[in-house]
Design a binder for these strands. Sequence first.
DNA 1: CCCCCCCC
Length: 375
Amino acid sequence: MDEITEIYNKLGGIISEDDFRKRVDEKVDQMSGLCDMKTAAMLVAHDLGVTDTVKDIIKIKDITAEIGNVSFVAKVTSVLDVREFNRNDGTIGRVGTVKVADETGSIKLTLWDDRADIITNGSVDVGDCLEITGYAKEDSYSGGTVINIGKYGLMRETDQNIEVRMQSHKIADIKDGMSDINISGKLLDISDVRNFQKKDGNPGRVMNILIGDETGKIRVTLWDEKVDSTTSLNLDDAVEIINGYARTNNFSQQVEVQIGNHGVLRKTEANVEYKESFTPITDIIPGESYSIKGFVSGLGELREFEKDDGTSNMVSNIYVSDDTGRIRVALWGDHALLVDELDIETPIEIIDAYSKSGYEDIELSAGNRTRITIK
DNA sequence: CCCCCCCC
C-alpha cells in the first residue's frame, strides 16, 4: 500500500479515494512543487478536518536537516519573542521561535512573517500540544536542526497529550543567563506583591517566592499576571517552574529565576526534598545570608524610628546563642514585635538573615526575607 | 522591568 492510500485510509471514507488523490494533486500544484505528495496528502486530510494522519509520523529524535518536509506532534516547551529584520528587498520580515518536544527530544521551530502572529497574539502557550508540518533544515546558528514554518507550514492544536522528556534542573546548577529552566522545589517563602511603574509608564506587579531542593534554594521573581499563580499555593507545597530564565540580581549579586510571560509556576506531585542547613554562629562572616538555630540569650527593647524616606518602622534586638557562639540579631518591621513573645532560653530558628559588621560586632539583620520560628 | 539589608 502506498503512502497516499495509507493516509486516505485514515479518512474513514468521507470522500472517495479518487477525489482524495485529485485534491492531493491540486495541492501539489498550489504549492508550486514546494511540498511532496505525502505532505500534500496530509494537508488535504487536514483540510477535511482529519488531523491525526500526522500522528507518529516522525519522532523528534529522527528529524534531520536532510529530511525536508516533516509532520509530527509535539508539545510547546517555550515561546520566544518575535524579532523584526530588514530583507534585502527593503521589506520588513518577522521571525519568531517556539521550542517543542516529544518523548524523544526537543526541536526549535522558526516561524516566519504571518506565522509568527501566534506568538504576538498569545495564541500559543507553553504546554500546548500541536500537530506541526514544516521544513527541516540545518540551523546555521547552532548547527542543529530547525523546523521552518513558513507559508505552507502548519501548526494546529491537537487533543492528544504528548509526554515530554524535559530537562529538569537542580537549583545548584542554575547560572546567570540560562533560559528554559525547569525546576521542582519546595515553596519556602512568599513575599508581598509590589506595584511599580514600568519604564514605558504602564503599571507593573512583581513578587518573589523562595524555593528549595536538595541542592540549595533560590529566589524566584514573578512578573505581572504571573503573580496570580501564587494565590492557590501554600508554604511547603511542592511546586514546579517551567520555562524560567536566570539573571543575577544587581543588588544581591545572587542568581535568581525569573518567571515572565512564558513561564509557569504551579503545584506538582513531584517528590521534593529540602532541608535547611544551619551555620554555627561562630562561622558567620559579614555580607552573607545565613540560617541559625539556637536559643534566645538576650532581649532588648522594641523601638520605633523614622526611616530616611520619612516612613516609620520598628526594630528590636535579641541575642541568640548556639554551641559555638552568641550573636546579636536585629529584628526589623513585624519581626520586631516577637521580642515580647520571647524569653531567655526560648529555642529559635532564624532562616535567611543577613550578616553585617554592626554596632559592636558581626550582627544579623532579620528583615522581610527572613523567617523566624520559635519552638 | 521591581524591591531590599534600615535603629542605638
